[in-house]
Design a protein around this nucleic acid. Structure first.
Lengths: 244, 244
DNA sequence: ACAAAAGTGTTGGAGATACACCCATGA
DNA sequence: TCATGGGTGTATCTCCAACACTTTTGT
């Protein structure tokens, strides 16, 4: 092969291999607060002397025959044991040193076959209505927890930045598409819908104007059913039905 | 290592390596039409008998020490020899078979060191004002051409899908951010601005309403200069100055 | 004079904003 | 009866859509 004619943009001069992973920012709404699914893993081979944990957003290496969306939903269903959840790719994180900070070294060494390999991670976010599906912590030696969005601790790798980027994308998507209903149970009140908007957008909204807007969305239909067992005037229940 | 306690989401059962590449959808506006930068490479080792070409969006494997944004701007500056161009990551393409179609086999075999490796590609789009910078076809044995958006041929791999996705993202970003000015020369007319909007959004706009909207954007300022040498009433020139 | 794009206002309707009080329930 | 969120209407203003003719230049 004559390199002087075949030299190209697709240079092979230096070659390397990457690992590709998917990290999933899972948002859940419990009726009052927005939460994020985190996994805590004890570092193996320690005698509980000082507890050391690895806290992270759920993620995994992509398998050889697996597409990216597929990997994201596998990761999610391993944790929550439910399927059919809203999932969206939002950004890919590829800084050369993103997994090579001192704090992450121990975990990488113990858990990864090639701890020195550069890892490019494709970020997804997911929306889960906590009221419908109480997800079971299904997984192995790790615990899952729904952490308040306002209370996220320092996480492994660049996962705090991944969450920030996911939240920013969520804000945009809520403004432009009807995805917010993915976070609500099948039956919800207008109060919940408004609170959720306020949390995501980070500002308060006028109740009467908000309800006026909702009333002119054809997709939000009133059920003839009301809240029960609540310590105030029970609210009308609504549901979301995508028009055809 | 005790696998029963360390088994985790980050399974190492099957392991593989990926190549990671960046593909760049470069939009250029020439004053009349929206175009996309394509590269055409003759397949090496052929005797011009039947001409066979590889046509693709500019792209390359990411280098070992290089970030993704960095790779995208390297690819772009190799082709256009200008810097400081607007660049944005929009989606990552990772279908397991995305480079393994029959039509692409020859190119992969001849140009890539590991033609069997799965390739995950991070899509970027870029915006170039063709009137300011006439980019020189700078590159090796390949030719660059600015192809009309309405005339894109069948390209290598999944590059047609990448262009579609890039265009969709561009549409959204034009609606939500002030990026459209990246496609215009420093001095432009309101007619050009409107035409560009119409092309990108795929619909015609009312001239008077359009101009009303522009006039209330503080960032678009009238120069005291007019078009010259044009076969009709010369237009007022404007420029875009980001407010502080 | 003609061709070709530039430039310019008004009106009616829809959506946004601002604002305060009564209601139904469980404890 | 009290605490708690549920539920409701009006006035103003801004933004959007629809619509047609005159102006300036080069040939």
């Amino acid at each position: 092969m004559n390199t002087s004619t075949t030299a190209s943009l697709n240079s092979n001069k230096r070659s390397m291999t990457f690992d590709v992973s998917v990290d999933n920012v899972v948002f859940g709404f419990d009726g009052d607060d927005l939460r994020i699914l985190l996994i805590r893993q004890g570092l193996p081979g320690q005698d509980m002397g000082q507890e050391r944990f690895h806290m992270a957003v759920p993620g995994d290496l992509v398998l050889p025959e697996e597409g990216l969306d597929e990997a994201a939903s596998r990761i999610l269903s391993n944790l929550t044991s439910i399927k059919g959840i809203f999932l969206k790719q939002f950004y890919t994180f590829g800084a050369p040193d993103r997994v090579f900070h001192e704090k992450d070294k121990e975990w990488l060494t113990k858990m990864r076959r090639y701890p020195d390999r550069r890892v490019v991670s494709v970020g997804y976010y997911s929306l889960v209505a906590l009221a419908d599906y109480r997800p079971k912590p299904n997984s192995f030696a790790s615990q899952v927890e729904w952490c308040l969005l306002s209370n996220i601790p320092t996480l492994a790798f660049d996962h705090n930045a991944i969450i920030d980027a996911g939240l920013e994308q969520l804000r945009e998507d809520v403004a432009n598409r009807n995805i917010i209903f993915e976070l609500l149970p099948e039956k919800f009140t207008l109060g919940q819908l408004q609170r959720l908007h306020e949390i995501i957008l980070g500002k308060t909204l006028d109740k009467r104007n908000f309800r006026k807007n909702v009333k002119r969305m054809a997709d939000v239909v009133a059920l003839d059913e009301k809240q029960a067992g609540v310590l105030h005037k029970p609210a009308q229940l609504y549901t979301y039905r995508r028009q055809d």
